[in-house]
Design a protein around this nucleic acid. Sequence first.
DNA 1: CTCAACAGTCTTGTATACAAGATTGGTGCG
DNA 2: CGCACCAATCTTGTATACAAGACTGTTGAG
Lengths: 225, 225
Amino acid sequence: MTQLPDSIEDSVISAILGGRLRPGTRLGEAKLAEVYGVSRTRVREAMMRLETRGIVHVSARRGWFVVEPSATEARAAFQARRVIETGMLRDLHTLPGDAVAHLRAHVEEEREALHTGHVGSRTCLLGDFHIHLAHAFGNAFLTDILRDLTARTTLVSMLYQSDQDAAASSDDHAGIVTLLADGDFAGAARLMDEHIRRVEDGLDLAAAPDPLAGLREILSPGAPA
Amino acid sequence: MTQLPDSIEDSVISAILGGRLRPGTRLGEAKLAEVYGVSRTRVREAMMRLETRGIVHVSARRGWFVVEPSATEARAAFQARRVIETGMLRDLHTLPGDAVAHLRAHVEEEREALHTGHVGSRTCLLGDFHIHLAHAFGNAFLTDILRDLTARTTLVSMLYQSDQDAAASSDDHAGIVTLLADGDFAGAARLMDEHIRRVEDGLDLAAAPDPLAGLREILSPGAPA
DNA sequence: CTCAACAGTCTTGTATACAAGATTGGTGCG
DNA sequence: CGCACCAATCTTGTATACAAGACTGTTGAG
């Protein structure tokens, strides 16, 4: 379903969406250059582009890091998504003929991923729903903006998620598609508002961003201190 | 009011907002490097950042150019602004105490610029209103997004504006501030919707983007061919 | 044993050199 | 006179070299 990324940026973003890159992960220029088989120049360019999109940031002479949104930024990212996505649905009058079918198919994919239990593709699909919805709306700018915001909220979820009920999210998505199919755009907007709020409220923003992100995977099999 | 820009990006953007840089203008790396007194490397970095923000684009081995939005992109840019700004106002419950005062002061500045008739600062101020409003809303992401979208719609106006009644726009702004002061956020959202639609409808999207943009300023004092 | 100072290593920051393609102006043929 | 071809020039694309700062591990004094 997801075509393999052709650029370094897409590759990094899809790794984030799929949960393979965690917030705070260091992305060394030399290492990436080797991985992608290009020179540091290209890697640097890609990193700078990702920086202006708010996906990574650079710490002077230390390296590039996947952003670790603060509690404030986490709230703001979800609010931004809520504002844009509900605004979009409220502005909606008609949808392209095949849009509902595509969205329904996507929700079906989500369901399957829920059952097979593959966490990576599940997270990725749940985020993709919103991007597909934006795509159906047909505004390229909003689609791009939401893609970046979704990447950020995915990072937020990795940092602050308490339980993040994936099944409930997918149910919301299904409900939204049903309302869209009925032409009840205002209703869809309301449900979208609740949906994003629900995810947002499920976050534990008091949880301090894990300063040991990189260590965890190495230490996780060991006994607690 | 507007502090002088400290980065190349800000400098370019403020030149666009002020109407000093027109769509299609070529920005040569060597020339910019000389102007800013830096090496081509820095200029290139800035240009690439502006490219991901949709402000300039690169034509392979020909140079960097200020974007010339197509009719489709023009419509999409305004729609995106409408969706976001109305969504923002609808999501509003309270406003910081000094926000209304600041916005009122800004509208007053617009009025003065209208009377003195300085086109550059007028255009700049009319765009800035929306950015200040976003700032008052208090979401940094949305503010950044709207800054870039406003730059784009400014470029659109330069290409497709038929008459662009600045006075009417300023009146709309004043009306929005009044409604905000009364706490009528839904009303403000409605007026904002009308306001952006009005500007959008005032565009002549049939007008082909001027392929001779760069020549005009040189030839304008001369007689028609 | 603790801690401060220091040398070595690693990583990014920046400039510069050179390659590759685009444009321009000129030249010669038809 | 018009047009196609070609050389010269200009501009960006990419790699690489070197400088500057940050981190790590060691060493020695107290």
